[in-house]
Every structure is written in structure tokens, then in C-alpha cells.
Simulated assay, not measured.
Amino acid sequence: MGAQQREYKQRIGSAQGMKKIFKAKEMVAASRISKAHARVLATTPYADALTQAIGAVATHSQEAQHPFLQADRAQSGRVAILLITADRGMTGSYSHNAIRTAEELANTLIDEGKTPVLYVVGRKGEAYFRFRNRDPHRAWAPYSEPELGSLGQDIAHTLTADLLSEDPETHLDELYLVGTRFLSRFKQAARASRLVPMQLVDAEDHVPGAFPLYEFAPDAETTLQELIPRYVESRIVNLLMQSMASEHAATQRAMQTATDNAQTQIDKFTRLANTARQAEITQEITEIVGGADALAGSGRTER
């Protein structure tokens, strides 16, 4: 076998090995999407119920107040951006889209005279900003999928403390969440949404002029003090789980594309190897025929 054929055979073997890896990762990601989506569906009703409950308290109690419900919280000019990215590679454009959305939001805040403060989840986002000498204020990386609930609680406690802090160097006026919403297995969207100050509407339908009777125990203000931290935590946990489901879907698509590309390379080098083999055979036949013609022309015969 010629050197050229050996090179092609090595490349074919390498592409076949990579194809097996990509296919395996694609199948693993596909198997995890359904479970991740089920967790999203399980946490969404709880967050929606908390929204309705807080809306009921805020709407039907004039005495209840909470710092997160204040429309004007401007004190320090600092605005938190919680960015959720992947903790590993091979996820296609998943992390890139989330980072781009966060960058666009940060530029908008700077134009408004505010100071964006980055809170980053995932090694991809952390590495992106550290490489550009813009270290995040706080980063959570690495993290694992089974720990999303406890991770969300830790993030919520940290952000809530900074939002309620009286220190001008720590206090946050607003909180934005930037993550990837899981719309379907084939469609995900990176979006930014404001969580604080909260905009709540009583979701209960009622006849105009007739209001339902509410009774809060022990009182409306204490109820808000209990509900709002849980609401913030539930929204962060829900977004973490949506982002994880989106990450699995992005990984599946990326690995499917990589598998197809590996097969394309296998087909390409197989054709080149066959062409080189045919060329060697043709060359050998040509040399044999040429040698026979030379012997015939000289008048000599082989013994």
C-alpha cells in the first residue's frame, strides 16, 4: 500500500472514531431532553401560582409593601444581569446566543446611564468575560444537572441579599434574567426579562365592579415577605431548568450535524483512497506493459 493510501486510511479511521463519539453524545442528549422538559413543566405551575398569590396581595391590600414592588428603586445605579450559559462544550450556538443577548442588554443599560453587574452561571460565560478582562461579580461554575434546585436557591439568596442591601457599593436597583427559553425540542430562544422591580397583575377573572373576598394571615405584609423571596427563587430555578433543557436540545442538533460532517469526511476520503488505489494499479500495469514492450523491441526473450 502506498503512502498516500495509508494517509487516507488513517483519516478514515479517525473520522469513524469521531463519528461514534458524536453519535453517542447525540443519543445521550436526546434521551435527556424529555426528562429536562418534564422538570420544566413541573416547576412552572408553582411559579405561576406564586405570581397569582403575590398579585392578589398587592392588588387587594393597600397597606402591603415590599421593596421589590417599588417602581422606582434607583439608589446606586447598579443593575444585575444573571446570565445562564453552558458548563461544557459541543452545544452549538447555545451559549453564544445567551452571551450576545446579555451583551446587548448591558449596552442598553450603559446607554441609560446605569452600571451592569454580571452574575454568571456556567464555565462558558465565565470564560468569555474573564478572557476580556471583565470578571463577573459572581460566578457559579461548574455545576451539575441534579443540583439545579440547590443552585437556584443559592443564586436567589445571593441576589436577594444584594437587592435589599443598604450599602451603595453592593445594592442593586434592578435584576434581569438572561437565559434560553425551551419552546420545543426544535426551537429555543435566548431572552432577557426583568424580574425586579416586579410587575404583577392579579390573574383572577372577576366581574367588573365585583371583587373576590381576600383574607391574609397573619397579615398582608407578612404574606408578601414570605411569598416574594420564594417567587424570585422559583423563577430562577425554572429558568435554570429551561436553559438545561435547551442545552440538551442544542447539543443534540450540534452532534447530529457533527455526525453528518464526519460521514461526509469518511465518504470523501474513501473515494480518494479508491482513486489512489486505482492509480497505483494502473501504474503497475503500465510499468509491466512498458517492460514487456521494451523486451520485445530489443529482440530478447525471457527465460
Rank of each mutant, 00 (worst) to 15 (best):
K114R: 09
S243M: 11
A64H: 00
P45Q: 05
D48N: 10
D167S: 11
K35G: 15
M18S: 14
T251G: 08
R39W: 03
Y46F: 14
L272D: 03
Y94W: 09
P168R: 11
A245R: 07
F68E: 04
R100W: 15
P208H: 00
I54D: 01
K268A: 11
L105R: 04
D154K: 14
V79P: 01
P116T: 02
I110T: 11
S61Q: 09
K25P: 03
I84K: 03
T264F: 11
K187I: 05
R194F: 07
A161L: 04
T85K: 07
A71P: 02
L183A: 02
A250C: 05
R39Q: 10
Y214K: 08
H96C: 06
E166L: 13
I12Q: 11
Q65V: 09
E169I: 06
L50T: 07
S34G: 10
G125N: 01
P168M: 10
Q242V: 01
V201T: 03
E104C: 03
A56K: 06
T223L: 13
A56Q: 08
G179M: 03
I155L: 08
R134Y: 12
Q242L: 03
A71T: 06
I266N: 05
E204N: 03
G209V: 00
V28P: 09
S184W: 00
G125A: 00
G291V: 06
M18W: 13
E215N: 15
T101P: 00
F182K: 01
Y8M: 10
L148Q: 04
A71G: 02
G179H: 06
K23D: 14
F131L: 12
F186A: 07
A192F: 01
T44V: 14
R235K: 12
A80H: 09
G89D: 10
L83W: 11
L177N: 07
E215C: 15
R6F: 08
K187V: 09
Q278H: 11
E233W: 10
A38S: 13
I266Y: 01
K23Q: 15
R100F: 14
E284H: 10
K187C: 00
R32K: 15
P146E: 08
D154C: 05
A86C: 12
V117E: 04
K187R: 10
Y46E: 12
D205V: 08
N133M: 07
G179F: 02
I54T: 06
T275Q: 15
M198S: 05
S150D: 13
I81F: 04
Y94F: 15
A192G: 01
D135V: 01
Y8E: 10
Y214T: 01
R138G: 02
L172I: 12
L183T: 03
S193T: 04
L227S: 08
T286W: 02
E145K: 12
R11M: 15
F186K: 07
S61D: 14
R73D: 03
R194Y: 04
Q199G: 07
V117Q: 05
T282C: 08
L83C: 10
L159K: 02
R138W: 08
V120I: 11
F129K: 03
F269E: 03
P146A: 09
Q283N: 11
R191Y: 05
Y143H: 13
Y46A: 10
E126L: 02
S14A: 15
A245K: 07
S14Y: 15
T223A: 13
N97C: 07
G55Y: 04
G125T: 00
V79L: 02
E280T: 05
L69A: 01
P45K: 02
Q4P: 02
I281A: 12
H206V: 00
T264V: 09
D205R: 06
